[in-house]
Amino acid sequence: MRYKKFGKTGLEVSEICLGTWGIGGAGWDAHSDEERMDAIKAALDCGINFIDTAPAYNAGRAEQYIGETLHCLGARKHVILTTKCGNKYVDGQYIRCGSEALIRRQCEESLRNLQTDYIDLYLVHWPDPNVSMEETIGAVAQLKKEGKILHAGVSNFTKEQIEEAGKYCEIEAYQPQYSMLDGDNEAVIRWAAAQDMGIMSYGTLGGGILTGTYREVRTFGETDNRNRFYPYFREPLFSKVMELLEVMDAIASERGVPLAQIAVNWTLQQPFITSCIAGAQSRKKVEENCAGLEWQLTEDEMHRLDQAIQRYQFPVQCGEVYQRR
């Protein structure tokens, strides 16, 4: 595992951050409790010290898996925990709510779920247009003053929203979507990195499509996140992704590596990315992702991939179906 300084926080984080949306168990493939918790153990075994979660990941279930695992291993002090606020999961729906009352309640619930008395990094999951930034970020600032969170950041914010948030609390981290399939946020990422914010990007594997697992259009359930959140599993983007995978396939064949490692490397070799979030629900997948840090793409391979990405642009943003309060 490799580690980087996480912006102005002073934290040293693993370049791969374990994503736990899938581990929460809603909207993804079915796995046993034991397998999900073993995936968390595998991440620690591989040297990952950075875990990302949220109360919206199956109404706190992902946090509970993490809390249980870290408690059993006695590993809490060795892990940098990131969780979020301002987004609820109710009856299969994600609802943004940035009220002070909800943020305070979610923080207390997250502390219980994670079996800890502090959160290393606390992010506002999505901005809520119906609540003032002062109220939302002010609530986060108060939690920081109380010592319940150590560092504050935002996810899915625009540059203007980050600047406004910074009026009420120091913003030390930015979590945007960024991958070979989605570069819409790159300008904001570059700006945030220049402000010495830690950058932890999500969607590294494109919801799994960049692993090469899906070679034909499939029908997923209405609440499945590959149907609801990521547009790549449907036409017209699916065929475009398949053309990009052809270039990845060639590099994978030449190197004898899985496609997921190419996607991870391409993201991490962007100088403005501190750590990339890679979700996995099994030990095998966690170990496979982490093994990608044993090598790097050459300049020629990066050029081939960048050319393919430029030929097959992906203009549709993800997450547009998130409901407003």
Score class of each variant (00 low, 15 high):
Gly22Pro: 06
Gly22Tyr: 05
Gly24Glu: 03
Gly24Pro: 02
Gly24Gln: 03
Gly25Arg: 01
Gly25Gln: 03
Ala26Val: 12
Ala26Gln: 11
Gly27Gln: 09
Gly27Ala: 13
Trp28His: 11
Ala30Glu: 15
Ala30Phe: 11
Asp33Ala: 12
Asp33Trp: 09
Asp33Lys: 13
Glu34Gln: 09
Glu35Asn: 01
Glu35Gln: 08
Arg36Asn: 14
Met37Gly: 01
Asp38Phe: 01
Asp38Arg: 00
Ala39Asn: 02
Ile40His: 03
Ile40Gly: 04
Ala42Trp: 00
Ala43Asn: 02
Ala43Pro: 00
Cys46His: 02
Gly47His: 03
Ile48Gly: 06
Asn49Leu: 10
Thr53Arg: 05
Ala54Lys: 04
Pro55Gln: 14
Pro55Trp: 10
Ala56Leu: 10
Tyr57Pro: 03
Asn58His: 11
Asn58Ala: 04
Ala59Asn: 11
Arg61Lys: 12
Arg61His: 10
Ala62Thr: 05
Gln64Met: 13
Gln64Lys: 13
Tyr65Asn: 09
Gly67Leu: 09
Gly67Pro: 01
Glu68Gly: 05
His71Tyr: 06
Cys72Asn: 10
Cys72Gly: 06
Leu73Ala: 13
Gly74Tyr: 08
Ala75Asn: 04
Ala75Glu: 15
Lys77Thr: 10
Lys77Ala: 14
Lys77Ser: 15
His78Val: 03
Val79Asn: 05
Val79Gly: 05
Leu81Cys: 08
Thr83Gly: 11
Lys84Gln: 12
Lys84Val: 10
Lys84Glu: 13
Cys85Phe: 04
Cys85Met: 10
Cys85Tyr: 01
Gly86Pro: 01
Asn87Ser: 08
Lys88Met: 10
Lys88Ala: 11
Tyr89Phe: 15
Val90Pro: 01
Val90Tyr: 13
Asp91Trp: 13
Gly92Phe: 12
Gln93Phe: 08
Gln93Tyr: 08
Arg96Met: 11
Arg96Gln: 13
Ser99Pro: 00
Ser99Asp: 08
Glu100Tyr: 08
Ala101Phe: 03
Ala101His: 05
Leu102His: 00
Leu102Cys: 03
Ile103Phe: 10
Ile103Pro: 07
Arg104Met: 13
Arg104Val: 14
Arg105Ile: 06
Gln106Val: 07
Cys107Lys: 01
Cys107Asn: 10
Glu109Trp: 07
Glu109Arg: 14
Glu109Ser: 07
Ser110Thr: 03
Ser110Gly: 04
Leu114Ile: 02
Leu114Ala: 02
Gln115Val: 04
Gln115Pro: 00
Thr116Phe: 06
Thr116Ile: 05
Asp117Tyr: 05
Tyr118Asp: 07
Asp120Arg: 09
Asp120Leu: 08
Leu121Glu: 08
Val124Glu: 05
His125Ile: 10
Trp126Leu: 04
Pro127Thr: 09
Pro127Cys: 12
Asp128Thr: 00
Asp128Gln: 02
Pro129Cys: 07
Pro129Gln: 10
Asn130Leu: 14
Val131Ala: 03
Val131Pro: 02
Met133Thr: 00
Thr136Pro: 01
Ile137Gly: 00
Ile137Ala: 02
Ile137Val: 15
Gly138Leu: 09
Ala139Val: 09
Ala139Glu: 13
Val140Ala: 12
Ala141Asn: 12
Lys144Cys: 07
Lys144Phe: 02
Lys145Leu: 14
Lys145Ser: 12
Gly147Met: 11
Ile149Phe: 07
Leu150Gln: 11
Leu150Asn: 10
His151Phe: 14
